[in-house]
Design a protein around this nucleic acid. Structure first.
Lengths: 209, 209
DNA sequence: CATGCAAGTGAGTAAACACTAGCTAACGAT
DNA sequence: ATCGTTAGCTAGTGTTTACTCACTTGCATG
């Protein structure tokens, strides 16, 4: 019993450690003992702050939500054009994933979702908010004449979300062997280019064979 | 000891059951006992066929690889134009995921990858093969004048992979509440439309603010 | 029909796990 | 300086897990 910290500080420390360990070990292999060791308390001591492990996961989910929302707010500051806002949002999201790679691991962990439906729907809502913001910006861009008026903002936003998620997956499977953010920026430019008004005659693809 | 089957048949049954259970429980919560029960043998009996659980995972990975390659080969039959080939590949992949939802769960399971680097690199190679095929087809499409000559085939293929992976993730998080294949077909059309030659002046986006 | 191989069983083990009970002492407020 | 609150500890519990071992018996083959 060296130092005693306030419950609030400890809780934050624990959540932080959980985010680190969920990445290193995989969310489902992150044991309460590993987390306790990482923050320098005993395993039993952890339960003083989170009476069940699930409550810890809820706190982690909360933290992820906060980090994302903060990142988005920060990213949008000073950006005017919808295209730039979208670029900023995507870059912010990728930077967050790079700094906290546990996020996709937790977000998409089948293990966590099987007996924790609340978590699953919380993450679904979070992704929904991201999608909503992007879709809104695409609509602005269409109104501003920057992109094709035939573009469905929701679908376009799904493509952008897919870019981020697909990239995160590839980055993880590839052992983080490339620059997540730079790769994302390049692919986003390519995608956004395609949102521009198509040349007459190519707008609708020919019917399939 | 009711019926006794050949090792080959049993192994196939076990792998099949593992694919079902890895989806239901999450790959890391799929216990050897659950698999054994599902095929109707005792837990100890399972180790007759797979001496360590990891060997079972390798067999599962193998099966996934085979299913994918078969799906791709089948999909390409009778398709001539590169665009149609890409559509067919994507649809085949999505159908496979719909029929065997454990595939993305296993492919992206952080738990499985942490202490099973062989599996990770095997899946990386599998994704690489998919990417290679798509990239080759994009190049064909460019040569055929269907798509913008400035398009980088590798990047375009990454966007398509991102579409599939992002969609799979969303489908899973959303509790499979929409038609994976139909949604994929729609988004792919949107993406491919953007690959067409851009109107003069919009080819390069303006520099960022 | 005999027989050897191997598919399958029953009964275990040690380790890892989330979680509990009851005690101790650090700290803030008075 | 005292004292109540509460963070943290020690020492457990029951359960689940991968894996072992000695055995039994179904089946293809001679």
């Amino acid at each position: 019993m060296r130092t005693r910290k306030s419950a609030a500080t400890r809780k934050a420390e624990i959540v932080e450690a959980a985010l680190r360990l969920a990445d290193r070990l995989g969310p489902d292999r992150m044991s309460t003992e590993a987390v306790a060791n990482a923050v320098g308390i005993t395993q039993a001591g952890l339960f003083r702050h989170f009476p069940r492990k699930q409550v810890l996961w809820e706190a982690v989910a909360d933290r992820i939500g906060t980090m994302m929302e903060e990142g988005w707010a920060e990213a949008l500051r000073g950006k005017a054009r919808p295209g730039d806002k979208i670029r900023a949002l995507v870059v912010a999201q990728l930077r967050l994933i790079r700094a906290t790679p546990a996020i996709p691991a937790i977000l998409f962990s089948r293990e966590l979702h099987t007996d924790n439906d609340g978590l699953r729907t919380a993450f679904l809502a979070l992704l929904g908010r991201f999608h909503g913001r992007i879709a809104g910006l695409v609509e602005e861009g269409i109104d501003a004449g920057e992109w094709d008026a035939d573009l469905d903002p929701g679908d376009a936003a799904f493509l952008i979300l897919g870019l981020v998620q697909g990239l995160a997956v590839r980055w993880s499977v590839a052992g983080r062997g490339f620059d997540l953010v730079a790769e994302g920026e390049r692919l986003l430019e390519l995608l956004l280019r395609g949102f521009a008004r198509p040349p007459a005659g190519t707008a609708r693809p020919e019917p399939r064979s």
